[in-house]
């Protein structure tokens, strides 16, 4: 029981949920309301289904990538190439769809999803193999592939934006019975992936190996784990989530171009870090990364809703990242002290 309480109180997610909740409340109170012309009811400018789903959708694309990237970070690495993988997967899929011109929505879905995920997987595999094979730090390798992959996307499209068939858009923009111009598919995908990622990291043997390797690579090797498998594995997962995000993004917005998701890698890393991942490895969570992404988007949204000057967005996000990490460490040491105090020594 105490164990459970300790874990709950000490977990980053609890704090993040509290912060998200507080931010949502504050925003709702401050947002004011407007009259809905059709029904004549007063509607809160933030707390309405449209804005809420819109905010979650905005977050979902890089939240999904952040879930994969968090695994790389937990394993002690970093993936700067996710934005480029997104762009390459997006245009690859759009080109494949244009080339095959699938007749039905189902065929478009199959072709689109396989190409996007396939390209993501290949790019992630490439990252992993380069890191393991060349023994170069992931920062350098993915800094390189970040340029290379986007360059390939650029060359392949001749810098044009490529349309995605409407049949596909109608799938990712399915209202699922919500109606009223609400498109919940990306949001649901994000939630599902957060759940899968959390279970994967916390409950599977591979997840445990990722934490062990990030915590102490040498000890993991001594214990008989395979560093190559773990490193390639996390990059593949990261590539796959970027591919999935690209699939959702390109089909949602109806087109893909080599300039998509530029700078996303920083949003992705920021989400992971705000969500409690440690850049030195061995710490982080999928749920945390998702919440981190939501928090960042919420900050962005609040600037819009409250009609602040949009130019302040970056400053505010930058501050939020630093504050989040400091608060995290502070609460960690607080809970640790509270629970260690008076337990005495065992020897």
């Amino acid at each position: 029981m105490r164990d459970y309480a300790r874990r709950l109180a000490g977990s980053q997610e609890t704090g993040l949920v509290a912060v998200l909740f507080a931010a949502t409340m504050a925003l709702t109170l401050l947002a004011g309301s407007h009259l809905d012309r059709a029904s004549g009811i007063s509607i809160n400018n933030f707390w309405n289904s449209h804005t809420l789903v819109q905010t979650a959708t905005d977050a979902s694309f890089f939240a999904i990538m952040a879930i994969g990237a968090t695994m790389v970070i937990i394993a002690g690495g970093i993936d700067l190439s996710v934005g480029s993988i997104y762009a390459l997967s997006g245009v690859g899929m759009a080109l494949a769809l244009r080339g095959t011109a699938p007749a039905s929505g189902g065929a478009a879905l199959a072709t689109g999803l396989t190409t996007a995920l396939g390209i993501g997987l290949l790019c992630g595999f490439l990252n992993g193999v380069l890191v393991v094979g060349l023994r170069v730090h992931p920062f350098i390798i993915t800094l390189g592939t970040m340029w290379i992959l986007r360059g390939i996307a650029f060359v392949a499209t001749k810098a044009e934006s490529i349309l995605v068939p409407a049949s596909l858009t109608s799938i990712t923009k399915a209202s699922l019975g919500l109606g009223g111009g609400l498109f919940p598919v990306p949001m649901l995908a994000m939630l599902a992936l957060a759940l899968i990622g959390t279970i994967y990291l916390a409950r599977t043997v591979m997840g445990r190996h990722i934490f062990a390797f990030g915590g102490n690579p040498e000890a993991s090797r001594y214990a008989g784990l395979s560093p190559a498998r773990i490193q390639i594995g996390v990059f593949v997962v990261s590539g796959l989530t970027a591919g999935l995000a690209a699939f959702l993004g390109a089909s949602f917005y109806g087109s893909a171009s080599s300039g998509d998701a530029q700078g996303y890698e920083l949003y992705v890393i920021a989400s992971a870090v705000v969500g409690g991942a440690s850049l030195t490895g061995g710490k982080g969570s999928a749920l945390g990364a998702t919440l981190g992404a939501l928090l960042i988007v919420l900050i962005r949204q609040s600037i819009r809703t409250l009609h602040f000057d949009q130019n302040y967005e970056w400053i505010v996000i930058g501050c939020a990242i630093i504050i989040a990490v400091v608060v995290d460490r502070w609460t960690m040491s607080m809970t640790q002290r509270r629970f260690n105090f008076g337990t005495g020594r065992s020897a």
Partner: peptide, 12 residues
């Protein structure tokens, strides 16, 4: 010492 300090005794 070669242990993963971020993990539990059982996991190690």
């Amino acid at each position: 010492l070669s242990l993963c300090e971020n993990m539990s005794v059982a996991e190690n």
